[in-house]
């Protein structure tokens, strides 16, 4: 009997270690696969030119990825700037100020938003946000725009990020011990001072982590952004102009333009770039989280 229990103990442990191994090995395999596929292009051109040049003429074997990288970064930045404050304040309100009933009502609402397929956000973007940008926002800023723009992409993307970041922030703020809040209040902090000095400050690593994951997700989001951002190769970025993010480049062209020499390799390089940039974003946020935890 005891022997059986020891064996089942060991089997459980092996299974757990195997699971971890699969998780660790997956990104390595994907990264390696992308690299092998992109290798012909990397052999052809120096890396600096691929990343730093903005000439995109596949027929002439000119592959400059800068417009795509910047396009992705720009749309992600707008989405982050729009969604982060909304998420932060609503998460604080829902966990600290409102009654538990409101949070119970809000949970399914957030889950529905999180579960909507991105093509629906894309359609909503085309029907609502694109005309809104071209008819109202652009004239307001004294310019003209087709509406298919970085701003439209950013707005749609921010709405997609909200449920994702909000859910994580709610989890973070719910873990702040009640005793800590009581301690702060009993010293004479007002409610908002308490929130500032305990909830936000204790939850800071968690906030960073939620933002980091949100940014990484936004950076890779393809469908909805592709539908509203215009997809034009440009380097001069203006809020009301089009851009061509990296994921859109891959999704639009893979399988269609492969007759052009090196194009296959170029798209794989774009995928590798996405992979590396998302990895970098995560590493940077991990580093900040590590530092804030150390200083706590």
């Amino acid at each position: 009997m005891l022997y059986r229990r020891i064996v089942s103990d060991k089997i459980t442990e092996w299974w757990m270690v195997t699971s971890i191994f699969i998780i660790v090995i997956l990104p390595i395999i994907i990264g390696f696969g992308l690299f092998t596929k992109a290798a012909p292009l990397i052999e052809l051109k120096p890396l600096g030119e691929l990343v730093g040049s903005s000439t995109w003429l596949p027929h002439k074997k000119e592959f400059g990825f800068l417009p795509f990288i910047l396009g992705s970064l720009y749309v992600t930045l707008i989405a982050f700037l729009l969604s982060a404050p909304i998420c932060l304040f609503s998460a604080i309100y829902l966990t600290q100020f409102s009654s538990k009933r409101v949070l119970r009502i809000m949970h399914p609402v957030i889950d529905v938003l999180a579960g909507l397929p991105s093509v629906i956000y894309g359609v909503w973007g085309i029907v609502v946000i694109v005309p809104f940008v071209s008819d109202y926002l652009a004239p307001l800023f004294g310019t003209t725009s087709s509406g298919y723009s970085i701003l439209a992409g950013g707005i749609v993307l921010s709405v997609m990020c909200i449920p994702y970041i909000l859910n994580m922030l709610i989890e973070v703020f719910n873990t702040i011990p009640l005793g800590l809040k009581e301690a702060s209040l009993s010293i004479g902090a007002t409610f908002w001072e308490m929130v500032k000095h305990t909830v936000i400050s204790k939850g800071f690593p968690g906030i960073l982590s939620a933002f980091g994951l949100g940014i990484a997700k936004a950076f890779g989001e393809t469908m909805a952004v592709m539908m509203v951002v215009g997809n034009m190769v440009q380097v001069k970025f203006h809020l009301f102009d089009s851009a061509y993010p990296l994921p859109a480049l891959i999704a639009n062209n893979y399988g269609e333009m492969l007759s052009i020499p090196m194009y296959d390799s170029a798209l794989m390089f774009a995928a590798l770039l996405l992979f590396v940039i998302i990895l970098l974003i995560n590493l940077v946020f991990r580093y900040f989280i590590y530092r804030t935890k150390k200083h706590e």
């Binding site: 800590l180 902090a189 007002t190 400050s201 800071f204």
Partner: peptide, 18 residues
């Protein structure tokens, strides 16, 4: 807050601020 400052609270576990 000023009423609460008339009373110092000591909890079941120490809760130092971060």
């Amino acid at each position: 807050p000023s009423i609460r400052q008339k009373m110092g609270l000591l909890g079941q576990r120490p809760y130092p601020l971060p």
